[in-house]
Design a protein around this nucleic acid. Structure first.
Lengths: 340, 340
DNA sequence: AGAACGCCCTAAAACGTTTCATCCACCGCG
DNA sequence: CGCGGTGGATGAAACGTTTTAGGGCGTTCT
């Protein structure tokens, strides 16, 4: 019933407690006969190592955490899968925490992770990612790698995609298609991805056509439901002001927009063109296949995990690195029709 | 740099170590003035409790794990979100582990979780769910709740959806639409959901129309890619044998099938009708909105977590429960056209 | 023959908590 | 004036590992 300890195993095998530990941790430092006796005792008692004790002694855990903005967003699950591959090879364990774009929950998770002295944390922070809390972790010797977010300052590693470029690509494409009244849907703007994608789009628009308009429709978060709400709002505008194209901060919003527009009989892309962001697996399978700015999702996760492990192993000799990937526009039916 | 311990806090505040512990755990058992001094010391030193030590002493962890078949499957992320709500209220932490439908990885996760003496485990097992490993956990006093899987025997709690009924609903609908050559796509059959959904469909077919055929096309797993492959295979059949409808073990497969069929110019539902399973958020947003057997996804997670917490708190007095939800067929365009 | 070495094992300390048995001082009461 | 009670603090034990210093003992080298 109650878990057997190393001590009982030792008694059972007629050896000292230290010997059992040796069998577990450096098997070939102990004579084969003894080793076997110990292994038998372990099997018989169903002994399982107590990780708390091990960690307490070692001061280090073997788990790595990834804190994502939204587990239900396929973009993040793909990142998780990528990270998983790398972490697994390192014989560590990846645990996934969901902040749900909620500051308090993120803080709570980080507190718990700090108490657990995890080996490292991959995180896409809710805010700008310069919270003192993250610095704290770092001071404590817990490496932190920012995911999908270039860290302005050099305090830590990061992997990111150039969101300014992504926004620019999307906007240039829409301008190429002849659109002049365009909306950007996304929020909250406190999330840098949301702000950067908009900034890139705005810059492209300013360069290319100062007369074109870019309206902003803020959403409370980055979900399908939020997209539906934002689209419903756009539909209330007088026709002359209504945008002919929307660029969405991510694909979930774009899918919501698509649903709401078709529900109200608008044709995509003829009445309204849509471009999303992330290129999640479901974007290409949508009712009207969605144009989207593709990010290397798994790659992002793999690289982040590699940087983290590197830092965890190197210790003080570590030099922080910032990896930036280039996004790529994938044009599909939702925006691919010349207008006018 | 190195983490401050309770001992240093005590020295700093000029009290004994036990008093600091009291401030942390029963604040009002210590005089206000002393308490404040301790809290100040904690703040000044940036003290963070060491959870390993706490757990070692307490013998109990505050984390609950959920082991899912595939984190990238929106069905499971919705279950996770449901569980999260409940776990959070109980002031515990939910960690997500991904078995990826892989037996070895599942085993590895369970080993690690056992070593960590987690408070409980929610799991959708890769196999039939009667692995000795799960029993071991239970003997160790770690409650296990089966998710999306009725446990034949009574050894543990479970929450499930009646997959036989789900299969039946899907099949009856397709028969109603006039289909007589139908394929079931899914796999591996070692996953009970896959087998049960098929069994339900087969039973309905046998009852309703003994002449109709149900072909099985096994897939290696339950992903979009597997669905594409299976569909490609179906397309190689001579036209006279080719099914006019497919029932897929889950929505991911169904989406893959849909993609592959339309890529080859087949019309859905006219040439081939499709019914999926789970009714994930993206099913209704697909190119051809997908008919699907809806499961109460978040509800499943919430209930499972509730049962788990109940069992963890009740200890030996606990009576295992088996909650079964009824699925519901949602008919959309992918199957909604009378044939012949 | 004695020193030196290698192999296998043991004993004990340490990791940072929580908890429990005391202890102390003070107060009110008989 | 002595007695039990009480609120508040203390000290030590215990949780289950890992690690380190060393001990016995047989073998090899000089």
């Amino acid at each position: 019933m109650t878990a057997a300890s190393i001590k009982e195993v030792a008694r059972h095998a007629g050896v000292s407690l230290g010997t059992v530990s040796n069998v577990l941790n450096r098997p070939n430092a102990v004579a084969p006969a003894t080793r076997q006796r110990v292994l038998d005792a372990i099997a018989e008692l169903g002994y399982v190592r107590n990780d708390s004790a091990r960690q307490l002694r070692a001061g280090q855990s073997r788990t790595i955490a990834i804190v994502v903005l939204d587990v239900a967003n396929p973009f993040f699950t793909d990142v998780v899968c990528g990270a998983e591959q790398v972490v697994e090879e390192a014989d560590a364990m990846l645990v996934v925490c969901n902040s749900g774009e909620n500051d308090a929950r993120e803080r709570r998770h980080l507190e718990l992770l700090e108490e657990q002295r995890v080996r490292g944390v991959l995180i896409t922070p809710v805010g700008h990612g310069q919270q003192p809390r993250l610095d704290r972790l770092h001071e404590r010797g817990i490496p932190v790698v920012l995911v999908d977010r270039g860290s302005g300052r050099a305090g830590r590693c990061s992997v990111a995609v150039d969101d300014l470029l992504g926004g620019r690509l999307a906007m240039e494409h829409l301008l190429d298609q002849g659109h002049r009244r365009i909306a950007y849907l996304g929020g909250p703007f406190s999330i840098p991805q949301v702000a950067d994608r908009h900034a890139g789009a705005a810059a492209a628009l300013a360069e290319r056509d100062a007369d074109a308009q870019l309206r902003i429709a803020k959403t409370t978060n980055l979900t399908v439901a939020a997209g539906r709400r934002a689209a419903a709002e756009l539909l209330t505008l007088p026709a002359a002001q209504r945008p002919t194209a929307v660029f969405c901060a991510n694909d979930l919003i774009a899918l919501g927009v698509l649903q709401e527009l078709t529900k109200h009989g608008r044709r995509v892309p003829d009445d309204v063109a849509i471009v999303g962001y992330d290129d999640i697996e479901f974007a290409g399978a949508a009712a009207i296949p969605l144009s989207s700015v593709r990010q290397p999702r798994e790659q992002l996760g793999r690289t982040a995990a590699q940087l983290l492990l590197e830092e965890a192993d190197a210790g003080a000799t570590h030099r922080h690195r910032h990896v930036v990937f280039q996004p790529e526009l994938v044009i599909r039916a939702s925006s691919d029709r010349p207008r006018r």
